[in-house]
Each structure stands twice: as structure tokens, then as C-alpha cells.
């Protein structure tokens, strides 16, 4: 009589596999951290009203006549006669209901003013990020493989130059050369419809990508140099594994973690860069709106844009944090205590 074969354990489901790769406790801790950070940043954004010189009610009234009745009305509407903490509570409540207030300058609702312009800025940031990745990552890998040789020096020199060039300077040079002299691309404006929009965004996206490329380049080069010096890479090379396999199977897997963390940082630089790029190329995105609103002390709009940027930066960092254990199994088992990890 033959014994029945031992039961095959069922293959782990997708949820279980994801749970193993992304420990729930780790996710929960990161989510909580992001929430705390968002509260802190929202408080800072709220405090901008207190930072503006003079009476907040007059600031919110703007250029309109500051009659006692109008001031009283604004104070009542924004709860300005109550303690600051209560004001913050009301403000946060409005925010969660997506009521961002009305623009002092135009009188329209802030949400609609932002909505019109956010799409263009998102397109620009997306294209700029793609350009930065396409330039920064390959060049960083190339420089690392040619460490301390002329190619490396040249790539690093390029990095220093792009790092030293403010986005408005390179944008202006690109307008002069590619739009005015060669006539390849339009110099200003956002264009209409899909392809025309894309054509108008080529120069701005390249400008933006160049401005932040250097950070990615530096990070990638450092990470790849570090990986190349590791024993398992040396061993792979010694046993005759081809350079392409070494690069993709061994080096890039190890370098992925620091580069992902850096990519989140790059997003913060990108958001700052768009303000300048949109100003140079006369693109009606969030950047010029922010600059104009600051000049006119249009506080509700400034607060809304600042909050949007802060949220994006937080989410990018969260995404990078969550991607790390997926990329590197060693990070999946949590360190017993933070002290021991250090």
C-alpha cells in the first residue's frame, strides 16, 4: 500500500505575497508619519495668515474698502475674533470639505482657479520628471562604469553645469536658440489640443528636466559606484558574467533603493522649478498664479497652492518609502528597535 503523497501547500495568494513583501506594520507606521507631517505642514500653511504684516482681516479684505462693516463681516466669516486654534479648526474643516475659500483678487472660488491650471502644471511636471529620469539615470550609470576616466569627468562636468544653471537661464537660452534662431519649437504659450500642447511643452520640459537632472545623476553615480565595489559584483564579473547581466541583475537592483529615495527628493525640486519655467515660457500653470498671488497678497490662493505642493511632496516621499521594501527584500524584516538599527 502506498502512502498518499503529502498535500501540496497551496500557493500563497496575491494578498499574502504582498503582505510578506510589504509588512502591514511598516505601512501603518509610514502612513501615520505622513499624516502627522501633513498636519504640521497644514498648520504652517495656516500660519501664513498670521505672518502677513498687519491685521488679518484687512489682509483678507484686500483692496476693497475697509469699512467697519466689511471688516466685521470678514472677521465673522473667518472666525477671526476667536482663538487661533479654533480658527485653525474651522479652516481645516473647510479644507476637508474641499472649500478652499475665494480669491481676494478675482473673487472666484480658489478651487476652480486651481483646477483650471493644475492640469498644465501636472503635464509639465510629468514630462520634466521623465526627461530628468531619461537623462540622469543612464548618464549616472555610464559615469560610474567609467569612474575617474575622461567620460566620467565629462559627465560630472555636465552635471556641475546643469546644477549651476537656474531654470530661467537655461530656458531663456533654449528659447533664443531653438525657438528664435532655429524656429523648431514655439517660444511661448501652452498651445491647444493634444499634439500642439505637447509641441509647446517640449522646451519647458527639457528646461525642467535639465535643472533637476544633476541631483539624479549624482545619486545614481554614487550608488552604482558603491554597488560595483561589492563582493558579489566582483565575483559575478570574475566568473565571466556579461557586463549587461551584471548591470541589470546585480548592480541596478542594489542601486535602486537610494535612487528611488532621491527621485522623491527630485520631485520637490521639480515643483520649485516649474514656477520659473512657467514664468519664462508664459505658461498659464500654477507657477505664475502663485507668483501673482504672492505679489497681490492673495492669501487664500497662496495657501491653496502651498498646501497642494506640500501634499504632493509628502505623497512622493511616502511612495518612495513604500517602494523600498518591494525593491529590497532585506528591508522587509523590521529592525527590532530603532536604536539597534543605527
Amino acid at each position: 500500500m502506498s502512502t498518499p503523497p503529502p498535500p501540496v501547500p497551496p500557493a500563497p495568494g496575491v494578498a499574502a505575497r504582498l503582505g510578506a513583501a510589504l509588512p502591514p506594520r511598516y505601512v501603518a507606521r509610514r502612513l501615520a508619519g505622513t499624516a502627522v507631517l501633513l498636519v504640521v505642514l497644514s498648520a504652517a500653511v495656516f500660519a501664513l495668515l498670521q505672518l502677513a504684516p498687519g491685521d488679518p482681516a484687512r489682509t483678507l479684505l484686500g483692496a476693497r474698502g475697509a469699512t467697519p462693516e466689511a471688516l466685521a463681516e470678514v472677521r465673522a466669516r473667518h472666525h477671526l475674533d476667536q482663538p487661533v486654534l479654533v480658527q485653525y479648526g474651522h479652516w481645516l474643516g473647510d479644507l476637508l470639505r474641499l472649500d478652499l475659500g475665494t480669491s481676494i483678487r478675482t473673487g472666484e472660488s480658489v478651487a476652480s482657479a486651481l483646477g483650471d491650471r493644475a492640469l498644465l502644471t501636472c503635464q509639465l511636471v510629468g514630462l520634466g520628471f521623465a526627461t530628468a529620469l531619461l537623462l540622469g539615470l543612464p548618464l549616472g550609470v555610464l559615469a560610474a562604469f567609467r569612474e575617474r576616466r575622461p567620460t566620467d569627468r565629462a559627465v560630472q562636468g555636465l552635471g556641475v553645469v546643469t546644477l549651476s544653471t537656474p531654470a530661467f537661464a537655461s530656458g531663456l537660452a533654449l528659447i533664443y536658440v531653438c525657438a528664435l534662431m532655429l524656429g523648431w519649437f514655439p517660444a511661448y504659450g501652452a498651445g491647444e489640443g493634444g499634439l500642439d500642447r505637447l509641441r509647446h511643452l517640449v522646451l519647458p520640459a527639457v528646461t525642467l528636466g535639465l535643472a533637476v537632472m544633476a541631483v539624479l545623476l549624482k545619486l545614481t553615480r554614487a550608488a552604482v559606484v558603491r554597488e560595483l565595489a561589492r563582493d558579489h559584483v566582483t565575483f559575478a564579473r570574475a566568473r565571466g558574467v556579461g557586463p549587461r547581466t551584471v548591470l541589470f541583475r546585480y548592480v541596478l537592483r542594489g542601486a535602486a533603493v537610494p535612487v528611488t529615495a532621491g527621485a522623491a527628493l527630485v520631485l520637490a525640486y521639480l515643483l520649485a522649478g516649474t514656477v520659473m519655467v512657467e514664468t519664462v515660457f508664459a505658461l498659464p500653470g500654477l507657477g505664475p498664479l502663485l507668483v501673482d498671488s504672492i505679489t497681490f497678497r492673495d492669501l487664500p490662493v497662496v495657501q491653496a497652492v502651498a498646501l497642494a505642493v506640500a501634499t504632493l511632496v509628502c505623497l512622493a516621499n511616502l511612495a518612495a518609502d513604500l517602494a523600498q521594501p518591494l525593491l529590497d527584500p532585506r528591508l522587509r524584516t523590521p529592525a527590532p528597535t530603532p536604536k539597534a538599527a543605527r
Binding site: 501664513l48 502677513a52 520637490a268 515643483l271 520649485a272 514656477v275 502663485l290 497662496v302 516621499n317
Partner: peptide
Amino acid sequence: ALPALLVTLVVAGI
């Protein structure tokens, strides 16, 4: 982690 230029622009401007 904050975009320094934007923060400076907003804080110094306001």
C-alpha cells in the same frame, strides 16, 4: 524634503 525656493518665495513674499 521641502522645496527651499518655494518656501522662501512664499514666506518672504507674504
